[in-house]
Computed example of a mutant assay.
Amino acid sequence: MHRWVHGLFALVALATIVALVVLWPRPDRVPDGSPGRPSGIPQPTGPSATGPSGTDSGSPTDRPSGPSGPSGPGGPGAPTLPTEPTQTCVDPDPDRLVALTFNIHGALGGGNGPDLERIAQEIEAFDADVVLLQEVDRFRERSGFVDQPTWLGTRLGMNVVFGRNVVRAPERRGAPRSEYGTALLSRLPVRRWENRMLPRQRGHEQRGLLRATLDLGGRPLDVYGTHLQHTRGTIRIVQLRAVRRIVAQRSGPDVPFLLGGDLNATPDSPAMAVAGTFALDPWPVVGEGRGLTVPPRVPRRRIDYVLHSPHLLPTSAQVLRSAISDHRAVRVSLDLPRPGCGR
């Protein structure tokens, strides 16, 4: 009898010990839903998730704010949040540039015939290193048969290239063929240039893309100027897709570029959505006011732009009045940081 009682007590004691081992709470776990910790997520242990030095090894913009992958410092699922801001290299002496786009309307807006001298005075006052001009005449009767790009280059002491997009028969006996297109004036040396025709629909004016490679502090800078079709939005989309292809072929990913001109498209248009796939608009960052450029006295639309590649950092952007043209000019200041600093 006593032997059975002793055996029964031994079994009860053994069961009690097993239950204590299995059910006793572990010190490194808390019940799901406890305050201060996400439900069901184990907390990282061991070295700091930011590495031995206590600072993140990458830039804050390069690190996700959620858990890291399997190779993260704290093991699988460990967060890798930076604890200190990463210092960004700021170039104390970047190459600086002021770019201007200006539809001069053949210098015809003064009311008393063409006034190219007044246009020159306005460009001079705008004080730009690179000037992109649209609606530029050569040897046309309406503008007094003046070679406008050559005249402006000489008057302002700037290098000049001209992209003729429309060529017609002479408008008077003995005169050269009349021409119409875009021009580029530059205080910087011009290494090379070309003018490429853009797609057009039948009955529409021929448009072009003028490109000049300039020397900015010993580095190449590609500047593209254009004047897109004004009558239909669909052809502007096609034209900007062609511009995108040319920029990709000519400039590639390493050469900084500007794209400016009268694009005849508002910022919310499908055409400007195409432009936004390969160039940046400085206006949301540094622009003064709404950037409206037409009509000149009380402008209601923004259709003139200076866009840029990510290599360039805009510092200011303004719209400037003209007493002659039917457009206001757009002036943008930009910095080009030296390699290895900034961007």
Rank of each mutant, 00 (worst) to 15 (best):
V306T: 05
R331Y: 01
R301A: 06
V98C: 06
I17L: 14
D215K: 04
V166C: 02
S65W: 01
G106L: 12
H230K: 03
T213S: 13
L210Q: 08
T315V: 14
P310G: 08
R26Y: 10
C89M: 03
R211Y: 04
R302Y: 02
P199V: 10
T50M: 03
R196D: 09
P44C: 01
L214D: 14
R290F: 00
G225M: 00
A13G: 10
F9W: 07
P337K: 04
P94L: 00
V238S: 15
P64G: 11
D127C: 01
L240P: 12
R219D: 13
G46F: 03
P256N: 02
L313Y: 05
R164G: 12
P27V: 07
D268V: 03
T150E: 13
V330P: 15
F257W: 05
V332R: 15
V130E: 09
R244A: 12
V30N: 14
Q229R: 14
F126Q: 14
R187W: 00
N159T: 10
V12W: 03
T61H: 09
G287L: 03
A265T: 12
S251W: 04
P25A: 03
G144H: 02
H308Y: 02
R328G: 03
A317W: 08
A10N: 12
R202A: 12
F102R: 08
D137W: 00
V286S: 13
T231D: 15
D28Y: 15
E122I: 02
Q206H: 08
G74T: 03
S39D: 10
L216I: 04
M1G: 15
A128Q: 05
I119L: 08
P284Q: 13
R96K: 12
G110C: 00
